[in-house]
């Protein structure tokens, strides 16, 4: 399932489309410690976090995740969004906690 399709089905806001219509979510990783995320998140994971700064986008690019999902109603600043546009990172937002978003991802991925 593409990140955009996941967002539309589950009521998440699409903040930046990026590569969200071409890529497919194949797994998920939740975390706010960017070094941990970079070391553990897999290619094509949905990266679920509340860490909203420009380094979040850099980590998303380097770890090659399918999208970033920002939870708890938190927003990226303009610099981060500009970087997401430049780097074609798909950014979604949810008002729900990371766990609730993870459950939705788990259902879509057939994990729960």
């Amino acid at each position: 399932m593409t990140p955009i399709a996941f967002a539309e089905k589950n009521g998440l806001r699409v903040i930046n489309v990026g590569c969200g219509q071409e890529r497919s979510i194949e797994g998920a990783y939740c975390g706010d410690l960017l070094s941990m995320v970079m070391g553990r998140a897999k290619e094509n994971d949905a990266f679920v976090t509340v860490m909203a700064n420009v380094n979040t986008i850099a980590v998303a690019v380097l770890a090659d995740v399918a999208c970033v999902i920002l939870c708890e109603g938190i927003h990226f600043d303009d610099m981060s969004l500009t970087r997401a546009e430049q780097q074609e990172v798909c950014v979604l937002e949810s008002d729900e906690p990371a766990f609730a978003v993870a459950l939705k991802l788990g259902k879509e991925l057939g994990l729960c």
Partner: peptide, 16 residues
């Protein structure tokens, strides 16, 4: 507070 500095940097460098 920006998500780094948790002592993962050098271990990540070695791992990768």
């Amino acid at each position: 507070s920006l998500g780094f500095g948790a002592g993962m940097g050098l271990p990540n460098m070695k791992k990768n």
